[in-house]
């Protein structure tokens, strides 16, 4: 396992998250939700801290983390990309958009680029079916995306980083 060091202030915040919920094992899912909000993901160290605070085996925390697809143990990129695969987006070619994203970024769904800039996920419907297919990057929504547009969209972010 890679050694990952957690910042002290964030560990204190994590303790507070658990304490707010009385270190109650029944609150595990809510605590994990808040912890993922804090760290962006749930590395083993975070799971271990939560297990210790709640006085439960870390295996149980890990079981819950791997059961729910919302929870992730991979750090998200600076610009998290979500490709909508809801019905409307799907029938208008979202799958091809997703394929192009994977090709351009050289990662698969659920992964993060080695430079930490982008992570790629898919989701089901953001409620903007009129704009299908839809891609979200961070908080920004891109509508009527085609595979041809993917390169241009990404290059804006690369330019921003230079």
């Amino acid at each position: 396992m890679n050694e990952i060091h957690l910042p002290k202030t964030k560990v204190a915040e994590l303790h507070a998250i658990c304490a707010e919920r009385n270190n109650d094992p029944g609150e595990l899912i809510n605590i994990l939700h808040a912890a993922q909000g804090l760290f962006g993901y749930l590395p083993p160290e975070v799971q271990q801290v939560i297990a210790t605070e709640l006085n439960i085996p870390v295996s149980r925390v890990y079981g819950v983390v791997t059961f729910y697809s919302f929870f992730t143990m991979t750090p998200k990129g600076k610009y998290p990309i979500s490709v909508c695969l809801g019905t409307a987006c799907y029938v208008r070619g979202a799958e091809k958009v997703l394929e192009e994203m994977q090709r351009q970024l050289e990662i698969k769904v659920g992964e993060t680029t080695p430079d930490g800039l982008f992570s790629l996920d898919c989701l089901r419907c953001v409620g903007a079916c009129g704009l299908a297919p839809v891609v979200m990057i961070g908080g920004k929504v891109y509508g009527r995306v085609t595979p041809e547009k993917v390169r241009d969209i990404l290059s804006d972010y690369y330019l921003k980083e230079q």
Binding site: I4, H5, L6, P7, K8, V11, P44, Q47, Q48
Partner: peptide, 13 residues
């Protein structure tokens, strides 16, 4: 065993 050995440092943000 300290699973995942977390150390309280300011190494990463």
């Amino acid at each position: 065993e300290v699973v995942g050995m977390y150390t309280e440092t300011e190494k990463s943000k």
